[in-house]
Simulated assay, not measured.
Amino acid sequence: MFDFDQNQTENLTQHHAPRDMSDRVALRIVKFMRIFADAFFSKRYGHRAVVLETVAAVPGMVGGMLQHLKAIRRIRDDQGWIRELLDEAENERMHLMAFIKIAQPNLLERALILIGQGVFFNLYFLLYLLAPKTAHRVVGYLEEEAVISYTQYLEQVDAGHVENVPAPQMAIEYWNLSPDARLRDLIIAVRADEAGHRDKNHDFANAISEGRHD
């Protein structure tokens, strides 16, 4: 179970201004990915969330695995990175499980999930091997976009354009939501998670850049 404080607040507008070419490349990669998401899903935010979380669940697992192997290879402490990254991957997977129950993706969208995960896993794996700082910055910017998307999703629910259906039982149990929680409560909880992952990955990129983690 994941305890979510329904009264907590997070910075919804925080943006890491690019500091160097690596940061600018990472930002452009994410903005390029956003173009396809907007073109394919438009305002279908439930379905957008399903595909987004399929991709978002990859970096933590890849990063955790490679940090694990590096720690073994170099016989050194990982500074808590492995657990943090694997927890991130698990949390993103739970986002996916929750929104699959909400959106009920069709066969085409499930095929897109399969293709997207396969392509992104291999590209991200290579990126993390060659440029881990850039890899974490990509995730930081990806999470910035996720916060924006979930804020827009919430606005659609509040405006009555998307039905505020009951939250899935597994989401209620995972985030420790109230028994009568609705989609709105789920979106707020997931958005808070994404804001946390955003800040953590930007911190990881900063740590590598500043020589506090190799």
Rank of each mutant, 00 (worst) to 15 (best):
F4V: 04
T9N: 15
L12M: 14
H16V: 07
P18M: 10
R24L: 11
V25D: 04
R28H: 14
I29V: 15
R34E: 15
A37G: 10
A37I: 05
D38F: 02
D38H: 11
R48T: 05
A49Q: 06
E53A: 09
V55D: 06
A56W: 05
A56Y: 12
A57C: 08
P59Q: 13
M65P: 04
L66E: 12
K70Q: 13
R74L: 12
R76F: 01
D77E: 08
Q79A: 06
Q79G: 01
W81A: 04
W81P: 00
R83S: 09
N91T: 03
R93N: 14
I100S: 07
I102A: 04
N106H: 05
R110D: 04
L112H: 02
L114W: 14
L114E: 12
G116Q: 07
F120I: 02
L129W: 06
A131F: 05
Y141E: 07
V147G: 06
S149V: 12
S149P: 01
T151M: 03
E155M: 11
V157I: 15
N176M: 10
N176K: 14
S178I: 02
L183E: 00
L186W: 02
I187D: 03
I188C: 02
V190R: 03
R191N: 08
A192W: 01
A192S: 15
E194G: 00
R198K: 10
D199Y: 03
D199C: 02
H202L: 08
H202G: 08
H202C: 04
H202Q: 07
D203W: 06
A205V: 06
A207R: 11
I208S: 06
E210D: 12
D214Q: 13
